[in-house]
Design a protein around this nucleic acid. Structure first.
Lengths: 224, 224
DNA sequence: ACAAAAGTGTTTTCGATACACCCATGT
DNA sequence: ACATGGGTGTATCGAAAACACTTTTGT
């Protein structure tokens, strides 16, 4: 259907994902460098325009793959961004997603049809971003912090399981906060996000640590 | 800018709000009856197509006013809905909002240019809805339950302040749960959502109750 | 004085915090 | 045997839950 009324004509939808990783206690986000106008040469979050034949999440995943080569990542929608002038070309509303994965497990494409570079940036050392992506990233970081205590979003960072010391470092990195080891264990186990695998241990040159894994389904707790 | 690539052509944005009220312990949502195709004659949530010259929230508020006459209401965006076929006419992505207000304080328009009726429906007695509005409403109810314990969204239900017994009935209605009176007081005051006005009492034929009001700004608590 | 609804305090229970020692491994 | 990091238990504190009586008003 062709829209005639210019109040509605020429609208489009962006699907934008803030893809995070944690490396040695540093939370990082994946940025790509644009090769086209608008914002040519600027760093932005991964994403692009939604196609008519795909759902929101599918579009976000396609854009991720096209522009970074990353394929297996779980993403969660968190907010829409729709300021009138957020895109200089036409009216675009962005649907924001977040995801987290292990950067060491992916073969990041440095250049693609639409990007001239891609890299992981510590979230406290972000260059100027194109579009409204600084705002999206800001909100995405807050959302990530919420989701790591209420969802299994970290599962995709640890697809092969995780030890409690590893997990503690991750939480400390993302929440920017230190925890007592014994209390952290109790707290995290109480969240019912992970379960003991019983099976395997993992070695790092000292006493082996038990391996836990994130549950596939998290049931939400009572609100009040 | 005119889009040529048919992968992107002809997209649009809906702004849809689930407007709630609570009457005598019953949580209700405002529905309007469509006067046009598609879904002519169907009940739907308040909303419509976003204009190019307005932000998301402004568009949602304009649609609310146009189709219900309601003007002063606070709304919060909560989720985007973008299944490929959610609109039969063209590709539309919906941005969902929730809001709550006192139905007794509004003069609801029963008919407008685009609607043939409007009414409040108990959320457990919802007729079949057009578009994907049943899904949007379902998610909106969950979101409302979250927001009443984490935000001051209820402020617009009680613009002149509220007593604790009134509030308790409201929470019980929305959360579908009963509370002990003494514990409810402690709990709700601990949330730091409301403050004592000291000033006024309110009579209902018995002992007057103290009036509290919702704060304008809520600071969020530690996540973990 | 009675009915109706508001207001309040104490005990108990449970989860959160603070804190120190033992254990398994590699060298 | 020593160094390194993993694992665990207890005492204390504070929040949440259970629970009953008193107060204010209108009639």
């Amino acid at each position: 259907m062709e829209v005639k009324n210019k109040l509605y004509k020429g609208q489009g939808i962006h699907v934008i994902t803030a893809l995070f990783t944690v490396e040695q206690g540093i939370t990082k986000v994946l940025l790509i460098k644009r090769k086209n106008e608008p914002f040519l040469g600027d760093w932005v979050l991964t994403g692009g325009a939604l196609y008519n034949n795909e759902d929101l999440e599918a579009g976000a995943l396609r854009e991720i793959e096209e522009k970074t080569g990353i394929t297996k990542v779980k993403i969660n929608q968190f907010k829409a961004f729709g300021k009138v002038d957020r895109s200089p070309v036409m009216r675009m509303v962005a649907i924001g997603f977040i995801g987290i994965l292990d950067s060491k497990r992916v073969n990041l494409l440095r250049e693609t049809k639409n990007t001239s570079n891609a890299d992981w940036f510590p979230i406290d050392k972000i260059p100027p971003l194109g579009y409204d992506h600084e705002e999206i990233l800001h909100d995405a970081i807050l959302e990530l912090r919420k989701q790591i205590v209420k969802s299994n979003i970290l599962k995709s960072l640890f697809p092969d399981g995780v030890t409690l010391p590893e997990l503690q470092k991750t939480y400390e990195a993302i929440l920017d906060k230190k925890f007592d080891r014994r209390n952290f264990r109790k707290k995290i186990l109480n969240l019912d996000l992970i379960e003991d695998t019983n099976t395997s241990d993992r070695f790092e040159g000292n006493k082996p640590a038990k391996v836990y894994k994130f549950k596939d389904k998290i049931e939400d707790k009572d609100i009040f």
